[in-house]
Structure formats: C-alpha cells, structure tokens
Write a protein that binds this DNA or RNA. Structure first.
Lengths: 236, 236
DNA sequence: GCTCTGTAACTTGTATACAAGGTTGAATTC
DNA sequence: GAATTCAACCTTGTATACAAGTTACAGAGC
C-alpha cells in the first residue's frame, strides 16, 4: 500500500512515446486528420513497434487518434460538437464543485492557495500569456480538487486535457488575460461570501466564454499555429 | 465517415480477451486483490502474450487491474470510498440530465420507450431479478442518452460500468424490484409534468439508496457470490 | 532456530518475425 | 481514352525470442 502507486513510476519507453506523441498533437506537429503508420512512429522515436502500439492504444482510448483496420492510424479530426459537449461537462462539474464549496465552513482555508495567485494587486499580475494559460488551468483544477471527490477530479482532469488542444489558442486575444484575472478573483471572493447561486452563474459564464470561442476556430487558424510553432523551433 | 467506426468492429483476439477478463472480474472469478501473470492468462485464453497485454492495459486504464513492475498483475482491491465517489458523479450527471429534460418540449416523445417499460400495469411487471437489473441499467442509460450530449453519455456509461461490479449484488434483496418500478415510474411521470426540482430530488434519492447499500457490502459477501457462481457453473 | 546470501525460476519490457488483409498503381483489355 | 485485373507493397494483428529486473527458497554460517 506504500510506494506501489504512480509516484515513482519510471519512464517506460511506451510511456515516453505516449507523452511525446500527445505533445506532438498538442503542438500541431501532428495535424488533425493526418495519417501515419506504427513503423513511421517507431522509426522517429527510435524504438520498436511494440511500445509504439501500446502508446497508440492509450491515445486511442483518450480520443486523440483512431486506428483503421490494417490500414494505418489517423489523428482524430476536429469535431466542434465534441468540444462543446466537453465544455458542458466541465461546466457541470465545476459549478457543482463551487456550490459544494459555498457550504463548506473551511472554504477559506482550502482556497488560500488560489487566492494568493488571483486576488493580488494589479501590479503583481502576470502578463505572459503562456504562463497565464497554465495558471488558468491550475485554477480550475484547484477548484475541483477542493471537492474531495477523487473521481470527479479525474474525470474533470481528463476533460480539460482533451480541451487543452483548443484552449491554448484562446489566450492570444488581447484583453483575455485581464478579464481572466477579474473573473477568477470575483469567483473566489464570492465563494468565500458563500453566494452559491451567484458564483455558479459567474463560473458558468466564465467557462462559456471559452466555449463560444471554439466556434470561431477554423482549420486555417490551426495551420497558422503550426507554422508559428515551426518558426519558434527553428529560432531556438 | 461511413462505416469507419465501432459498429462492425470485428472481434480481435485482444478485444475478446478484454471482454472475457472483464467478465471474469464481474463474476468474481478473479477476486479483488488476486494476483496473476500475463502468461497465465495467455495460456487460459489460448493466445500469446501480445493481445493479453493489450487487453490488460485497457483494463488498467479502466481501473480494474494494476501492473507491478516486473512483478505481475493484480485485480484492483475494493475501495468503498472510490465507489461512493463514482455514485456522486452518477447523481450529478443524471440530475443534470433530468433537469434539462424537464425543459424540453418534446420530452414525452423522447421518453416514450422508457415509459412503456416502467409505467405499466403491475401485472405486466417483470420479476426476474437479473432481468430487472439489466432494465434498471438501461433506464439510467436511457435518461442520459436523452441529453444529446455524447460526452456526458460516454462518461456516464463508463461510471456505471465501473459500478456494475457492486450493483449486481444489490437486486437480491426482496422488495427492491417493486421499489425500483415505483421509483422509476414516478420519476418518468414527474419529468413529463416538468417538475424539475422535484424530479431531481427523487432521482438523487433513488440513486442514493444504491449508494448506501455499498457500505454494507463486505468482502465476505463477495466470497459468497463467488461460491454461488461456482455452483451455478457446475450445474450447467 | 535465525539470518544472510546466492541462485534459479519467475515476472514484465522490448524487439523482431511472420501472417493476413488492405491499397495502390501499372499493365492489359476493351 | 476508360475500365479492369492483378501483383507488389503497404498496413496492422499476433506469436515468439530475448533482455532486464523481482521474488522465493534452499542452504551455509552462526
């Protein structure tokens, strides 16, 4: 029962390949719709097909790729309807969590960490969009972790990870950073005030802003992102 | 886009082994805590280790088994806290769904199938507990499918499947069948009436009955179930 | 009897060989 | 030129061989 679990899980080849492939998908190195074979990946990762297959089947279950019988693999094409459904699940879980939080007597303690980050002076706010994007994710993870329901945490994390691929296109818009700070701090303060209905409404609205931007994202923008990424890489 | 997906997915060896192993776990042929090796399974399933491994890694991700580094596999031990968390997720999803249903103008049409099964005369009710258990599962699936949110359906299905291992111990109690009929029919009628708050309350209560029985289940009862199953098998 | 040690028999992780079905494209036929 | 055929080459699915690490137990030493 002690050190059996994930903590010190040494990196298998399969694990490493899984992480790398997922990162490639997030970075649009592998574009939605792209087809590829196991041998191709094996060659690129300098490994045999066995660990590659293991990684691919995990990615398939995650919903990132799909296998065609004896006919290669494919990065799962974008499906905006799918993303919107995921956003709804996020809204459902997070609003439930904040409602519960509003009834917890020790909510101030539980939220202390988040409050130091988000309810700070304007001068202390972070302006780097990549960094804020990460903080934003952690904000929402942090809320759900307060629920003390590990399965809710797992499912929520899963959903957010599947959404990450499009969320990262979100923080490029100007004004989004400031708005995020304002919305997060308001949510936290209202939780402390115990305003269950109001805060659920705020949170729903906050997430729906992201949800609505999904519709605007086109394959063209994805292609752009890829090009930008390629340039970034060559400059390092 | 036509016949690419799951429908005609022919049974791989890996797929077959996955299903068989899961069934063994459900039937308590493999008891929580049991340890076993890949070769063992391969021998029993008359296949090589390759498809066995694929199946095992899927089961691991599903949360049924865990692998110990170069030291065999184990059926994940029971953790009642885990099951209660899952029940909470079920409650959250299903209450959300019925709330939405109460606002849908065409809810009578969507629910027609369920109503013929559950809102029938007492004389037409089914009394076989295994059959009712299956109908019960389909009732809850059916509700969520009405939500038109495929991801919610998927997650809910996943959660229910993970709960199935203990839910099947539930319908043995006398009176449970009649109560299920009464509760389901009341829920359906109240949805049609559009009573969002009342119906959510009913549903929550209905699921919490199951949730509370979890606490009563002990490993001893599981052992019993296994013995009973072994007897059933030998009688065939 | 107890502790330690080393080895033999296991385990999973990875690479590779082969089987069986899918795809493609050039040659053939009309 | 257009349609068809068929073979070479691809793909994944499965079995097997080997590498590397873990476990269990017999036997030595005390």
């Amino acid at each position: 029962m002690s050190a059996v679990e994930a903590p010190a899980r040494q990196m298998n080849l399969a694990e490493r390949i899984y992480q790398n492939l997922k990162q490639d998908i997030f970075d649009f190195q592998l574009l939605p719709g792209d087809r590829f074979s196991e041998s191709e990946i094996a060659k690129r990762m300098q490994a045999s097909r066995t660990p590659v297959r293991e990684a691919l089947y995990r990615l398939e279950r995650d919903g990132y790729v799909q296998v065609h019988f004896r006919s290669g693999w494919q990065v799962r094409p974008f499906d905006f309807h799918y993303f919107e459904d995921l956003y709804d699940v996020r809204i459902l879980i997070e609003t439930e969590v904040v409602k519960r939080l509003c009834e917890a007597p020790d909510r101030n303690v539980r939220l202390a960490g988040l409050m130091t980050i988000w309810c700070c002076k304007e001068s202390q706010r972070i302006s780097d969009s990549a960094e804020v994007a990460m903080l934003d994710e952690n904000f929402h993870y942090g809320l759900v972790e307060c629920s003390k329901n590990q399965e809710m945490v797992n499912i929520h994390k899963d959903v957010c990870e599947r959404l990450r691929i499009i969320r990262r296109l979100d923080f490029t818009q100007s004004g989004r950073i400031e708005a995020t700070y304002n919305e997060h701090s308001e949510i936290l303060e209202r939780i402390c005030a115990g305003d269950a209905d109001l805060v659920a409404q705020d949170l729903r609205h906050h997430i729906e802003i992201s949800k609505n931007t999904v519709r605007e994202i086109t394959l063209h923008r994805i292609q752009d992102a890829r090009n930008r990424y390629a340039v970034d890489m060559s400059m390092k």
